[in-house]
Design a binder for these strands. Structure first.
Lengths: 336, 336
DNA sequence: ATAATGTCTTTTATCGTGAAAAAACAGTTT
DNA sequence: AAACTGTTTTTTCACGATAAAAGACATTAT
C-alpha cells in the first residue's frame, strides 16, 4: 500500500501527527487581490444589482430612506448607488427627483461573484474541501493555510471557524489548532436525533395554535406551492430544497423556542450542502418528500395530534434515510 | 418621571434609537496596558503557578515532555517556566536534572488576575454589565465601546460575541450592531424546556448502559461526594454548584449526542452566573438539590426507567423554579 | 533504540489601522 | 411639522504585523 493516495489529500487538513503540504500549487488568491485591501464593497454591489431590477418596474425611484429599507442597506449605501446610476446614465438625479432614463443593460450589473459576503466565500471553500473527500475525521485545520488558500485574512477565517463550530463538525483545541470531526454516519444520526425531537414537539405546538393564527394562511400558501411544484416536478424538481426549508422553518417557529428555531440553521446548512453533493435520484426523492409534506400538512390542518405525530415521524424517518445513504460510513482508500 | 434613572444605565448598551453615553467615566484600561501589546503570556503564568504547587510534592521535576502533558502546555512553555524557576532559585536545572532547591513562597506566584484568558476577562466584564441591571432587552451592543471599556482590541470582543451568541442572549443585525435579547423569563423558560427534553433522554440512556460501563463507578464516586457535602452543608454549601455541573454533565454524556453534550455549556454558563447573582437562600436551595440528586442517583442505579423519569422530572422542575424566581419578569423602573 | 534536550520554524492570539457602511446631525423642501 | 437631502461622525469589517505558544527537527544522553 503506497503513500500515493495520501498525497492527493487536500493540503488544508493534516493527518494527526504527520503533516502533508500540497505546496506544488501556487499561492492563489481566489477571492481578493493581493494588495492591502481592507473591506470589499459587496454590500453596495449587491444592493446596486437589486436596485437595477427595481428600475424595470417604475419610472422614478422613491426617497432615499425608503430605498434603504427596501434594499436593506443604509442611506449612505443608497446614495452611493444613486451616484453611480446617475454616472452611468441610468437615472437623472436631482434632490428628490430620481427619474429613470433607460432600462438596465446586462452589463450594468456587477458580476455575481463580487456580491458575496466574505463569510459566504469562506464557507463555500471550506465545505467544498470538506465534501470533496480526503477529509478524514481527526485531521487538523490550519487557519493560516486556509486563509492563504482562499486569499483572505486570518481574522475572517478565525471568525468563520468560531461561527461554524456550532454545527458540531469541528472542535477547537485550546491555544492550538482546530480538529475536524468529520461528516460521518455518527454525525448524521446525532443531528437527526435532535431534529426529530424538536420537530415532533414543534409540530404538536403548531397543531395546537388557535384557528385565527397567521400560520394557517402561511400553511395554506405553502400547500399550494407544494401542489404546484408536484404538478411540474419533471422540470422544477430542484426547487424543492428551498421550499422544504421554508416549510420546516414555519413548523419550528411554532415552538416559540429560540434554541429550536436556531437549531434549524444546523439542519439547513447540512441539507443545503447535502443536496448539492448528492444528486442521485434527486427527482424521485423530492417527489416522495413532497407527497410526505402534503400528508403532513393535512395532518396539521386536521389538528389531530395522533395524525400529526405519525405524519411527522414518517417524513423525518425518510429524510434521515436519505441523508444516511449519502454518507459512506468509512471512506475506504479507493484503489486508483 | 425624570430621565435620571436612565443616566445610570451602563454605557455599553444603548436604548433603541436614542443613545446614552455615560462618558464621564475616564477610558480605563482594565485588562491591558495601553501600549501595542500583542498577546499576554497568561498561558505561561498560569502554568507556572500550577507548576509551583507541584514543587511541594517532589524533590525533583520530571522530563520536559512529561511536564508538558501534566500542565497541558507545550514544551516551549515548560522551558520558559523552568528557566524562570532556575532564575529565582527555586530549582537547579542542568539538562535532565531539575532538583528542587526551596519551597515556593507566596510571592513566587503570579497574581491571579494575570493568569486569566482574554476571553474570560471579556466574558466577566460583559456578564457583570448584563446582570448589573439596566440592561433591557432590545438595547444595542457596541463592539468598539465594549472593547475600549475593557481595554482590549475589537477583534477579541468580536470573537467573544460570536462565541457568546450561541447562548441565545444576543443577536446580530447584518452589517450592523448586536442586539441584546435580555435575560428574561422567556429566555429561562426556553432554556429549561430544552434542558428537560435533553436530560430526560440522557437519563434514560444512562440507565440503559451496561453494568460494566465506567459511568457506574463515576456515579458511585459522585454519590459519595454528595453525601460528604450533605453532611458538611453548613460550611461547604457553596461548593455545590461545581458538583452539580459534574453530575449533570456525566448524565448528558450518556446521550452520546454532541448537540446534547454541547448544550450543557449553555446551561452551565447561565447557572454559573445565576449562582453568583442570586445568593438568596443559597444553602437551603443547595440542600434541597443535593437531596434530589441522591434520589435521582438512586433511581439511575435501580435502572427502573419509571423511577428515573420521575426523579429527573422532579429535580428539573425545582431547578427551573429556582432559576425563574431569580428573574424579575420586567425590571420596572424603581423609584429612587 | 528510545527518550530526552537544544534549536529553529510555524501557527495562534491579539493589536492597530484604514476603507466600507451605518448612524447621527444639520439644514431644506414640501 | 414631517419627511427629505446634504454632511459629518461612528462603527463595523477585514487586513497585515508581532509576540506568545505550539510544533518540528536535529542532536545528545541513557
Amino acid at each position: 500500500m503506497s503513500l500515493g493516495l495520501f498525497r492527493e489529500a487536500i493540503s488544508l487538513f493534516r493527518v494527526m501527527g504527520t503533516s502533508y503540504c500540497a505546496s506544488n500549487r501556487p499561492p492563489q488568491a481566489t477571492a481578493c487581490n493581493g494588495s492591502g485591501m481592507s473591506k470589499s464593497n459587496n454590500v453596495y454591489k449587491d444592493a446596486y444589482n437589486r436596485c437595477l431590477r427595481l428600475l424595470d418596474e417604475t419610472r422614478s425611484l422613491p426617497s432615499e430612506p425608503e430605498l434603504g429599507t427596501l434594499l436593506g442597506v443604509s442611506r449612505t449605501t443608497v446614495r452611493t448607488i444613486l451616484a453611480r446610476m446617475e454616472e452611468t446614465g441610468l437615472i437623472a438625479w436631482n434632490k428628490r427627483a430620481k427619474t429613470v432614463l433607460r432600462e438596465p443593460h446586462p452589463d450594468d450589473f456587477f458580476p455575481e461573484e463580487e456580491t458575496d459576503t466574505l463569510a459566504e466565500i469562506i464557507e463555500r471553500s471550506f465545505m467544498r474541501r470538506l465534501l470533496a473527500g480526503g477529509a478524514e475525521a481527526g485531521m487538523q485545520i490550519n487557519e493560516l493555510e486556509l486563509a492563504r488558500e482562499i486569499g483572505v485574512g486570518t481574522t475572517s477565517v478565525r471568525e468563520f471557524l468560531i461561527r461554524f463550530s456550532r454545527f458540531g463538525l469541528i472542535e477547537k483545541r485550546r491555544n492550538s489548532h482546530w480538529v475536524l470531526k468529520g461528516f460521518t454516519r455518527a454525525f448524521a444520526l446525532e443531528l437527526t436525533e435532535i431534529r426529530e425531537m424538536f420537530e415532533l414537539r414543534s409540530a404538536a405546538a403548531f397543531a395546537a395554535l388557535p384557528q385565527d393564527s397567521a400560520v394557517w394562511t402561511d400553511l395554506d400558501r405553502l400547500e399550494d406551492e407544494h401542489r404546484q411544484l408536484a404538478s411540474e416536478i419533471v422540470t422544477r424538481f430542484n426547487e424543492f430544497s428551498e421550499l422544504d426549508e421554508r416549510f420546516h422553518r414555519l413548523i419550528h417557529r411554532a415552538s416559540h423556542n429560540r434554541f429550536i428555531v436556531d437549531f434549524y440553521d444546523v439542519i439547513a446548512m447540512i441539507f443545503h450542502y447535502h443536496y448539492q453533493w448528492n444528486k442521485a435520484q434527486e427527482r424521485e426523492r423530492n417527489e416522495v418528500a413532497i407527497g410526505e409534506h402534503l400528508v403532513y400538512i393535512d395532518a396539521l390542518k386536521s389538528r389531530d395530534l395522533g395524525k400529526v405525530d405519525a405524519a411527522c415521524r414518517k417524513h423525518l424517518k425518510s429524510a434521515r434515510q436519505t441523508l444516511l445513504t449519502s454518507i459512506p460510513e468509512s471512506r475506504l482508500p479507493q484503489k486508483s
